[in-house]
Design a binder for these strands. Structure first.
Lengths: 189, 189
DNA sequence: TCACATTTCCTAAGGAGATTAGGCAATAAC
DNA sequence: GTTATTGCCTAATCTCCTTAGGAAATGTGA
């Protein structure tokens, strides 16, 4: 019996690919083992179980998104940075729908604290540096960005805008412009 | 053995209550049967199975939200109607977190078409009547409302804003005002 | 009131997924 | 080349989902 040389990293990576192919909801130790051509029990050498596997995929997705956002937001400011950040989330969700779903998995606080979650919050605050907001408004603005980005992307991913005109890209552009308008008006208020 | 006189309606209603108590993710024929004090197999006389049960809970939640929104939006216009609609979704999610989660369950198109989903779209368009938008902008605006409401509510429900100051209520008020500002600016553009 | 049809909930059984325990063979170390 | 490690295996248990068929409670007609 030939060995595949699996590691926790490679197993989680294959799990992420599987999520993009069949949907995160259908990812489990059984479906992943089937895809890898090994027995379900063999996976327990690399992950602690079903929950551990799914949590690790979620952590991977959060990290990949944060990495991408770091690259895209760097060197941009104001509305350019805002659009870049939004496009990262939307683009990642389009390219990796299963991974994006995974990233929304609720985690216990200790796990969430060690995830890339705080990096995302920092990214949002970095974008807001281009707008002149005081401390109190900044928290609201971070929440506004999170709500709007996540709301649009998850509705689009769930097919809420499918098969209806105009294409969702136009709505996305309109929404990004609206966010810019709101943030600009807050700074002058 | 005493009979409980269960019906499909009562079973689904109890399922919705159970969802609010233990989370929609944990609702199944087994957990519901345990709560009702009957055997799992007995539920199959009232629902077709696990998926059918969960779908029916989702349909119930969509309908309850639409009913509530109808009542609250009636007789209001402009920013009052906008806030009323938003508060319906947020309030329903707070009171019935399990049901709200259920309402986000992806359904096949034929089921979705017979759900209260279209009523929600009509409600959003009704609110937008208070703003002077042309046809093309109206679609974008419907999507903006859906994205923002759902995005904020689901982040709040997932605990994204928990334990951080200022309280999420303040952010919610700020976001509703921002929506009003955006819609007003679109109508004058 | 009584026979009978219907309905409600039951027991029994099979199948699939999650998990643990322990074995054997392929790799790595010396 | 012998030995230790480790990767993947089989086997077994538990829980959940689902179907099939039975028994008792309810409703219906005389």
């Amino acid at each position: 019996m030939p060995r595949l040389g699996l590691t926790t990293t490679s197993v989680v990576g294959q799990g992420a690919e599987l999520a993009d192919e069949i949907g995160f909801a259908h990812v489990s130790v059984t479906t992943l083992a089937r895809r890898l051509g090994i027995r379900t029990a063999s996976l327990y050498a690399h992950v602690q179980g079903n929950d551990d596997l799914r949590t690790r995929i979620a952590l991977l997705a959060l990290q990949e998104m944060a990495d991408r956002a770091d690259r895209e937001v760097a060197g941009r400011a104001g509305v350019d940075a805002l659009m870049a950040l939004g496009d990262v989330y939307r683009g990642y969700a389009t390219e990796h729908p299963g991974r994006y779903d995974a990233s929304r998995l609720p985690m216990d606080p200790s796990t969430a604290a060690t995830s890339a979650g705080p990096r995302h919050a920092a990214l949002a605050r970095a974008v807001l540096r281009g707008y002149d907001l005081d401390e109190a408004q900044q928290v609201h603005a971070v929440r506004l960005l999170g709500s709007t980005f996540h709301g649009f992307v998850s509705l689009e991913l769930a097919g809420g805008f499918a098969h209806s005109n105009p294409p969702s890209q136009e709505s996305w552009a309109a929404i990004l412009s609206s966010l810019d308008l709101v943030l600009t008006s807050w700074s002058t208020a």
